[in-house]
Design a protein around this nucleic acid. Structure first.
Lengths: 167, 167
DNA sequence: CAGAATTTTCAAATACTTTTGAAAACAAAA
DNA sequence: TTTTGTTTTCAAAAGTATTTGAAAATTCTG
């Protein structure tokens, strides 16, 4: 049976790997992983020593995770240090990630698609262009709507019969 | 009304931007965008001059797009040059992307989760670890199943009543 | 087969991203 | 207010990823 320390390392490592495949800073994901599995909130110093990263790096990535709404600060009366803990409900985690990426990436793309869906169409090249842009726009709008629905839905969605109907 | 050339530039640029946000080489996405909107298959030389990139770069990215199953080669009898065209059915495009990323990223993660779901659990730290790993594993398995279903479903899925029921 | 056209490779150069660490800013305590 | 503990900032360094371009390999043609 694998021991805890080894499992922890593996988890942090592959969470980081996966994130960097998806265009997210590897260290940010590792900090996230560390806080996800922590039994108690951690200080910046604990994050630094656990992951063997600098103070600046720890600070910047904890901050980014808070911007994403995945990590929160805990202040303890009588203590100067700040403690950090991750949101552990996977449904909330995924919802936050969807919300963030949708806003930062999908929505700007939709805006561009809308802008360029009005190009003048008077040659075979622009014909082909317009057709593809129209299709992508239709598709993206649908995806956008579905994500909205997903985000509005609550945690029970995963066990919703509708979900299994899709199989 | 926006002119074709400007629209084309904007499209290529934002397709590349979006892709790089998602951990995909920007130039690869730009080549993809160019081929997506092209009325006819293009040669490597045309890709090079349209995007102003080197021969090696064009070759490597066209190749990668073929590996992803998003671009195909067309050979013309009596011509030495190779022509390339993109799959334009958005449903097929998205399906290919899902298939590729699922295989390269989600599946390895699932494997790791399975491995580490058997860590010994005998302290508060490992307790917290096991709980989170179990939740993530449950969630990822569900996501994996849903993606499988999505990929198996056909193009009509998007207009399937089930889809709108999710709203 | 030799020559010409074309594609592929890959080491080096360039560009981009992340990390460090020390100094500055800040905030609580004395 | 001064000291002390803590967080934040950011320029420079280190680390990664991408691009180039010329040489090698491949493939077609005569």
């Amino acid at each position: 049976m694998m021991d805890f320390k080894e499992g922890k390392q593996k988890f942090i490592e592959s969470w980081g790997k996966m994130a960097s495949d998806w265009g997210i800073n590897r260290t940010m994901a590792q900090v996230h992983a560390l806080l996800l599995i922590a039994a108690e909130p951690l200080t910046a110093d604990e994050v630094m020593s656990e992951l063997d990263i600098s103070r600046g790096n720890a600070n910047m990535n904890i901050r980014a995770l808070m911007d994403w709404g995945l990590v929160h600060k805990q202040l303890r009366t009588g203590e100067r240090k700040e403690y950090f803990y991750a949101e552990k409900d996977m449904w909330v985690v995924v919802r936050q990630i969807i919300l963030n990426r949708k806003k930062r990436e999908l929505e700007p793309m939709l805006k561009v698609l809308e802008e360029i869906s009005g190009v003048e169409n008077n040659c075979p090249e622009s014909e082909s262009f317009c057709t593809v842009v129209r299709d992508i726009r239709k598709f993206s709008n649908k995806a956008n709507q579905t994500l909205d629905a997903l985000v509005k839905a609550d945690a029970t969605w995963l066990s919703n019969p509708l979900f299994s109907l899709l199989r």
